[in-house]
Design a protein around this nucleic acid. Structure first.
Lengths: 157, 157
DNA sequence: CCTACAGTGTTGATATGTCAACACGCACGG
DNA sequence: CCGTGCGTGTTGACATATCAACACTGTAGG
């Protein structure tokens, strides 16, 4: 499926990146720094929630406020350790509670957590729109999404 | 320049993200998690250098091993604090040294740093190619780069 | 001279992420 | 019944990132 990439490039592991390869790599990292910083700033200053807080709360509320911890890890693409630490911190702040169930742990968003995510959603949506969506036309949005999916799962496309 | 984005979307700050907007946002975060993790694993297991190590060493060696600290911050899109802490750690490990100069600080890569980055470059290049470049054709690479630049600096395009 | 300001960098406290090691429960084949 | 894995989660040590506050230097205006 993935066809050859760059006529000036070489797949040999010892060949340095070509100009266009470097350009894409730097553009990727830069875009990520910029976007993450901008959205996190907007949301944090308005709601007191961090990036990882929002990610977890949104996915959990999407499925009615209760999720298997492992499912969260898979959906978010996080590893178990990271998620465990993050949930511990969020539990201490009263945003979620954890319950052992058959074959794992169930994460439930508390009422306080629901309130905070409800308050954060509009700010978050506006930030995402402003920084990620608005620079593009709807056709470009779709193309970009396809490209990103290709990165996440190159074998499935 | 940035034309209207999604006919089903609404710019009103209180409107939740549309399906296509959410899809792009999740695809973005997922792609980032996946790509960062894969490349960092490859490079770290082979060279002992972390993501931020590599970012700094590559940019510094690009300009003959010596850079103004502030220039590094600008190019990488990092803030001063983050860079300062990172350089402190790298200085402790003998990868760089810092020197006060007129109006700032000069960062120089040590011989040990040069050796490590030289050893890391091929591994890093191979990882970037495999995970970021190979899923795409050369035309797609160029389109993706333009899209990323648009995110970094929406006003300039 | 001197004062105020902008640019640059540091520090310490805290939040977040990673790694290696361990703990536990459950299924499967002896 | 007994191992032996495998999936799932936790823990502690450490690396990295962020925030608020401070320190230094040069420089422009009085």
């Amino acid at each position: 499926m993935s066809t050859r990439t760059d006529l000036t490039a070489n797949t040999d592991a010892t060949t340095p990146l070509s100009l266009s390869e470097r350009a894409l790599w730097f553009a990727w990292k830069r875009a990520h720094e910029v976007l993450r910083t901008r959205i996190a700033e907007d949301v944090r200053s308005a709601t007191g929630l961090s990036d990882p807080d929002i990610a977890i709360l949104i996915h959990a509320t999407d499925v009615d406020g209760t999720v298997r911890q492992n499912q969260l890890a898979v959906v978010l693409g996080w590893d178990r350790t990271r998620l465990s630490h993050q949930l511990t911190r969020m539990e201490e702040r009263g945003l979620v509670i954890r319950r052992r169930v058959a074959g794992g742990v169930e994460v439930e968003v508390t009422d306080a957590g629901l309130e905070m995510v409800a308050a954060a959603q509009p700010v978050h949506a506006a930030a995402v729109r402003r920084h990620l969506i608005e620079p593009f036309t709807s056709v470009q949005v779709e193309h970009l999404r396809q490209a990103l999916d290709r990165i996440s799962a190159p074998d499935l496309i």
